[in-house]
């Protein structure tokens, strides 16, 4: 099975993720896949929740906190600036309070609450989380490519979704019960017009957003999750562990991509330094092991390139290495 074939045969898998330990090439693969899809006329958004901003590096363009930036026709990239997002969000809340109650100024107590909530460490995480939901729920693109931060974070993201979901459903239930009593009182005092509970509406909306986003992540029909690994012993062990964890969270694994394979031709040329020759030999051993372990699930082997991947031409080269000449 080739990588391109996975895309071809599963046209509904529009949410693409590359996972793996740090520095193995997730961002690189995300960008190259986006490039490959965009070239074939699909609208693609590749986005990152990583404050380290590596999409800016790979596209050689500062896109941090600028929303979805068009890199080339059909290819958009976005790097979320959590701080900025939180600031804007606070302003929205303030404006809403001023509008709702006709205040000239936010009451001190409320303002200090807004500040305190925003200073919490969990704020950034939940803000990023929500922004991702925003992007995904909007549904403007054919493909969404998540440039995830290292593995642990991806899992954290998923577990957060389920914890949030539980909380929100508890709170929603409480709210609904309150509604019951309110209606009870209205029936007893024979007052008919009851105001809609806006909080309940908000909660239902929040809940919808969280569950859509987390269900997307775990929906085999819609999501393709690829593991990136390199032929090294430690990475192999880690990948196995991670894969079983992902299964536990019901994340559908679509396959494995092996990166940084030293090409046989290079070794055949002769006149190469011994450390490289040794590494090649070692890689051979682990590549074999990878094939034994994952078999048909290994979708591509990407060679080690001559230099770092940055700029569209290198990205194109990478896409070629991943997908060959195949199309959708």
């Amino acid at each position: 099975m080739s990588l391109a074939k996975v895309f071809r045969e599963n046209p509904n898998r529009r949410y693409i993720m590359f996972g793996g330990k740090g520095g193995l090439g997730k961002t690189t693969f995300s960008a190259a896949t986006a490039y490959w899809l965009a070239k074939q006329g699909k609208r693609v958004l590749v986005f990152s929740v990583d404050p380290q901003a590596s999409l800016s590096d790979i596209f050689k363009q500062d896109i941090y906190g600028k929303g979805a930036v068009e890199i080339m026709p059909n290819l958009y990239a976005q790097e979320i600036d959590a701080d900025q997002h939180i600031r804007e969000y606070q302003d929205q809340i303030r404006k809403k309070i001023l509008d709702m109650y006709g205040f000239d100024k936010i009451p001190d107590e409320i303002e200090s609450y807004i500040q305190a909530a925003s200073a919490e460490p969990a704020m950034e995480e939940s803000a990023i989380f929500d922004q991702v939901v925003d992007i995904v729920v909007a549904g403007e693109f054919d493909y969404y490519i998540y440039d995830l931060v290292p593995l642990g974070h991806a899992l954290y993201y998923l577990s957060m979704a389920s914890v949030y979901d539980q909380w929100i459903s508890k709170i929603t239930k409480l709210r609904e019960e309150m509604r019951e009593y309110e209606q009870m009182a209205a029936r007893l005092s024979r007052k008919s017009e009851l105001q809609e509970d806006e909080i309940l509406r908000e909660l239902q909306d929040i809940r919808y957003r969280i569950s859509t986003s987390s269900s997307i992540l775990t929906d085999r029909e819609k999501t393709a999750f690829f593991f990136v690994l390199v032929p090294e012993e430690m990475i192999l062990i880690d990948t196995q562990n991670a894969a079983s964890l992902f299964r536990k969270y019901d994340v559908p694994l679509s396959g494995y991509i092996v990166n940084r394979v030293i090409p046989d031709e290079l070794i055949a040329k002769g006149n190469i330094p011994p450390y490289l020759r040794n590494r090649h030999a070692m890689q051979k051993k682990y590549l074999q092991k990878i094939d034994e372990l994952f078999g048909k699930d290994v979708l591509a082997r990407v060679e080690e390139m001559e230099r770092d991947i940055a700029g569209l031409s290198m990205i194109e080269k990478m896409a070629q290495a991943m997908f060959g000449e195949e199309t959708l």
């Binding site: 606070q90 809340i93 009451p107 807004i114 925003s118 969990a122 929500d130 806006e198």
Partner: peptide, 16 residues
Amino acid sequence: PILPPYYSLRLLPYVV
């Protein structure tokens, strides 16, 4: 803190 702070801020206007 019980609810993710991002969402509690969203509910704040209604409970002012």
